[in-house]
């Protein structure tokens, strides 16, 4: 697909264009959160900042880890580690859809050449005690973005409502570059004798090794222990009045739980109980954050 330029955007160009675009809309361009999370929504810049009345507009890339999606680098579409591009606007601006469509134009998607559609898709995160209404945005039948108006976070009503856009970067890049495998994506453009590299050059070995670790190597006894430790540390931090620190431990527990699931050591019955424990930590942290800021409902 080559709409505007002769050379399609590289993976990093795609990110840079989105940064430029959203910065121009008044968003703070943040860096990824430095912990292992399952989705961009876990970044405190989304979870915690969507609470309370203060305006907040930001954009960032978040590496996202889904241990059970690992395929040892053998599936062209599924990865245990991938990137989400996250935009958060609070309160949700009245023209959020138009702003979003503007971002598609910025990365070279022509809406009179490609079929852009907003298809119902409501979002819910049981582990964050959060839900919202919105759409998955389709481009020629492919889901390229999740578009959500948060209604609740951590069990609290969002006052005001935050608009969240989550772009699947690899998928979008594959579309723009016309690639069938994520590993064939052009990561950067060659400059002089400095060559372009592919996504595979950067991440294929990572997928192989981490898939093996997630599914086979990770010591489950330690994982169970780490879960308990993170849970205890989260609770202690809530008690100590440091909700941001508590929230980090909630994130940690959530990821360890995902790893335990990938190792297949959590039964169906136990699963609900573990999810309840993670939710309690996340909600507890959110509650403490609300109280700390004097927003308690």
């Amino acid at each position: 697909m080559q709409d505007t330029a002769s050379t399609p955007l590289s993976f990093q160009q795609l990110i840079l264009r989105l940064h430029d675009y959203w910065a121009a809309q008044g968003c703070v361009i943040l860096q990824p959160f430095d912990m292992r999370v399952g989705a961009g929504t876990f970044h405190p810049a989304t979870t915690l900042r969507s609470l309370g009345p203060d305006p907040w507009n930001c954009a960032y890339v978040q590496p996202s880890r889904r241990p059970t999606d690992g395929r040892y680098g053998e599936n062209p579409n599924r990865l245990q580690h991938y990137y989400q591009y996250q935009v958060i606007m609070k309160p949700s601006p009245p023209d959020l859809q138009e702003l979003y469509l503007g971002s598609l134009a910025a990365i070279g998607i022509d809406p009179l050449l490609h079929d852009i559609r907003f298809v119902e898709d409501d979002w819910e995160s049981p582990t964050l005690g959060a839900w919202g209404l919105g759409w998955e945005v389709w481009c020629d039948g492919m889901e390229v973005t999740q578009f959500t108006y948060f209604q609740q976070m951590g069990g609290f009503d969002c006052k005001p409502v935050t608009g969240e856009l989550t772009y699947g970067l690899e998928r979008l890049a594959m579309y723009i570059q016309g690639k069938d495998s994520v590993y064939d994506l052009v990561f950067n453009d060659a400059v002089g004798d400095r060559p372009a590299v592919t996504y595979g050059d950067v991440f294929l070995e990572n997928e192989r090794e981490l898939s093996k670790w997630n599914f086979e190597v990770a010591d489950t006894d330690k994982l169970f222990r780490w879960f308990k430790d993170a849970e205890a540390e989260c609770q202690a931090s809530i008690a100590a009045g440091v909700p941001l620190a508590a929230y980090e431990q909630a994130i940690e527990a959530s990821h360890i739980f995902n790893l335990l699931q990938a190792r297949g050591v959590i039964s169906v019955q136990e699963r609900a109980s573990y999810m309840g424990r993670v939710r309690d930590l996340a909600k507890g942290s959110c509650e403490a954050w609300m109280a700390h800021n004097g927003w308690a409902q």
């Binding site: 697909m1 062209p76 579409n77 022509d110 809406p111 009179l112 050449l113 490609h114 079929d115 852009i116 559609r117 481009c139 020629d140 039948g141 492919m142 579309y175 069938d180």
Partner: peptide
């Protein structure tokens, strides 16, 4: 047969191609 929401400037060629790719990935799964 997919149903687009536009009269595409190329007569729908790019839309068909894009949808075909998505479908191929799904059928491959």
């Amino acid at each position: 047969i997919c149903t687009a929401n536009i009269e595409a400037t190329d007569g729908g060629r790019a839309i068909i191609e894009g949808n075909g790719k998505v479908l191929a990935a799904r059928l491959s799964d």
